[in-house]
Design a protein around this nucleic acid. Structure first.
Length: 501
RNA sequence: GGCGUCAUCGUCUAGGCUGGUUUAGGACGCCGCUCUCUCAAGGCGGAGAUCACGGGUUCAAAUCCCGUUGACGCCA
């Protein structure tokens, strides 16, 4: 009886820093594939390369993955105190806690004759490599230790450090990739990969294969940079008598200069996008379109649509450049559709870093901010922009910043002063200080006195906000309130027109 | 250096398997007009791709085949 095969996929990052945009895309595709197939999505931490380990990187990875909304079914999680705990029947999910397992399989390979001990020193390896490069040969281990007799190998193992290498046969290794179809490699050209390092730690290749098997991973969905090492993995499966999973190698994500997306050029840390005020849904939606598309070229997807419509067969093979402009557009699309109350909540940390203190226990001020956000919602591209866009509603009248170009343009003519005085006096008489009344009165004011609306409205805007752009004037005045409006006009008259007759 | 992968507007891509319905479709960006108290958003329109190149198969190729080139990745 075959048990029904449940789709199981994993995202297996190395904790070497922050979660990378490329990593997020890989995680997303795994997530979508799992959810689409009613399968399991697993997080595994591949931290066996101790030289690249960064303190706190695992916690970081988990928390940013959490922020992105890609929930997984098994793996390490963070508790409320930020401590790691693990959940799932296939654990531990952190490779550094599985070292003995890898050792065991390395030994099995050794025993079966599919691997061998290599006693070559790093210095000798380096010399061999140099010589090969000099002769324009591909740098590759010369297999010196491959033919050591068993007794010789055992004898030296007792007294010398050694690594364990895979015996790569001189034959063609062919496999079918879901995205790329048939891929063929010549075994005679592949290096005898080190599986177990002299310190007893496994290399990526061994640990990865062992875990994928033990965790019953059915589909390996990863970046194209792993395509060339796949034949080695296939070999390990074969030698251990295991059924290999199906492979799908995603096209690479590139910098605008067409190099592999890297930390060196541009922002690649998901953390950075969070800090800039991108919504996770927008980031995910954008990244989903890098290497995947629907036939009708749909651009905006809900998460559920993404899950329902996703399929590996619609993934493209060619690499994609990460285009920040389009991401920005998509983010504003999402912000426009987000509930203003949520936007208010999301924007609080951005107010803090902007230097505006908001009393989060004061529901009145929060309501007010929600209204203000609503006024500008169409224009917000990043959450980061919110404080700047509405700060003049929140600052005391005396702290309004008057832009230089505004002062030059609006606060220097005698007629402008006159208009301000007249408008102020007119506004003073309005008892119903609401939008419709304001609009009605201001338009009447203009037509009665023969002023152009643009002239008066922009002048008023400048006087109360210090800017030449912003929300509609009547909204602006209404949400400021009569008292502050009058006060600000007076302040401007005093401050800028004092020297004018 | 070897091996591998890829190749449609500046960018993301549809179409390619099952050749003609494609004067190659959509999205971002760009430009213009419009709406308008401003900035956006919206509406309308525009520019932008000899489908990398060369050869073949065919009445017909972006689509099938072969080769070349380029880009990128991996191996240290």
């Amino acid at each position: 009886m075959n048990k029904p095969t449940v789709v199981r996929v994993r995202f297996a990052p190395s904790p070497t820093g922050f979660l990378h945009i490329g990593g997020l895309r890989t995680a997303l595709f795994n997530y979508l594939f799992a959810r689409n197939n009613n399968g399991k999505f697993i997080l595994r931490i591949e931290d066996t390369d101790r030289t690249r380990y960064v303190e706190g990187a695992t916690e970081n990875l988990i928390s940013i993955l959490n922020w992105s909304g890609l929930d997984y079914d098994e793996g390490p999680y963070l508790d409320t105190h930020g401590k790691i705990y693990q959940k799932g029947d296939y654990g531990p999910y952190i490779q550094s806690q599985r070292i003995e397992i890898y050792k065991r399989y390395a030994m099995e390979l050794l025993k079966k004759g599919f691997a061998y001990r290599c006693f070559c020193s790093p210095q000798r390896l380096e010399e061999v490599r140099k010589l090969q490069l000099l002769n324009k040969q591909p740098p590759k281990y010369d297999r010196l230790c491959r033919n050591l007799s068993e007794t010789e190998s055992n004898r030296r193992a007792a007294i010398e450090p050694y690594t364990i290498r895979l015996k790569v046969p001189d034959e063609k290794i062919v496999f079918t990739d879901i995205i790329r179809d048939k891929v063929e490699f010549d075994g005679s050209l592949i290096d005898d990969q080190v599986l177990l390092k002299s310190d007893g730690y496994p290399t990526y290749h061994l640990a990865n294969v062992v875990d994928d098997h033990l965790m019953e991973i059915t589909h390996v969905i990863r970046g194209e940079e792993w395509l060339s090492s796949t034949p080695k993995h296939i070999l390990i499966y074969k030698y251990l008598d295991w059924q290999p999973p199906q492979f799908a190698h995603l096209p690479l994500l590139l910098n605008p200069d067409r190099s592999k997306l890297s930390k060196r050029s541009g922002d690649v840390a998901v953390e950075e996008y969070k800090k800039e005020g991108y919504l996770p849904e927008a980031l995910l939606n954008y990244v989903a379109l890098l290497g995947w598309s629907t036939e009708d070229s749909q651009q905006i997807f809900t998460k559920q649509e993404l899950i329902d419509k996703f399929s590996l067969s619609r993934c493209s093979k060619s690499p994609a450049i990460f285009d920040k402009q389009k991401l920005l557009w998509m983010n504003s699309e999402y912000i426009r559709k987000t509930d203003p109350y949520k936007l208010m909540e999301y924007s609080i940390p951005f107010f803090v870093s902007y230097g505006i203190k908001i009393d989060i226990n004061n529901s009145e001020i929060k309501e007010y901010i929600v209204k203000l956000i609503q006024l500008e919602q169409q224009k917000i591209k990043l959450l980061k922009d919110i404080p700047y866009m509405i700060e003049f509603f929140l600052k005391p009248d005396t702290e309004i910043e008057y832009k230089e170009n505004v002062v030059k343009k609006y606060f220097y003519l005698d007629t402008q002063k006159q208009i301000l005085i007249e408008v102020r006096d007119m506004l003073q008489t309005i008892t119903q200080f609401d939008k419709t009344t304001l609009e009605h009165q201001l338009r009447n004011f203009c037509s009665n006195r023969g002023y152009k609306t643009t002239e008066v409205f922009q002048l008023l805007r400048a006087a109360v906000s210090g800017r030449s752009e912003g929300p509609g004037l009547f909204d602006l005045l209404f949400f400021l309130g009569k008292e502050r409006v009058i006060n600000r006009i007076n302040l401007v008259i005093k401050k800028f027109f004092l020297n004018i007759k």
